[in-house]
Amino acid sequence: MAQQYRVLIGKPGLDGHDRGAKFIARALRDAGFEVVYTGIRRTAEEIAASAVQEDVAAVGLSSMSGGHVRLFPAVIEALRNAGAGDIPVLGGGIIPDEDIEPLKQAGIEAIFTPGTPIETIIEAFRSACRKHHSHRS
């Protein structure tokens, strides 16, 4: 049996547009992932606590309103505080080019923009999950 990967898709911050998040969630499901969806307007701490309880292999974040520079690293920080700094975080949304490098510096595994092909996104999740599972004790 192929390894079944579990991921969490969350939307930190205050904006209420979850079309992007839902689109990714469905695409991942169609690619065989089990996707825990936590809905909109979550704090970084809520996302981290959920990721821990659900024991997911990766967390995907969506941001449409420019909060990503603060919100994405906040989730990484919250995961570390929850003892789960090993769970990779991927992010997508409306993210200007100049923000990508700093986000990667802050530890975000991969960044997707509206132009990223869905196959690339799925492959990034798959490889993040594979890596995480290989270290799983």
Binding site: V35, T38, G39, E45, E46, A49, Q53, E54
Partner: peptide
């Protein structure tokens, strides 16, 4: 596909930070 969207947790997020509430979504 063998995949799943597990969305029940959305309605339980009010308890997300409570350590005495353990939620697990399963397919």
């Amino acid at each position: 596909s063998g995949g799943a969207i597990l969305g029940d947790r959305i309605r339980m997020m009010a308890h997300a930070l409570d350590r005495e509430v353990v939620v697990r979504s399963m397919a």
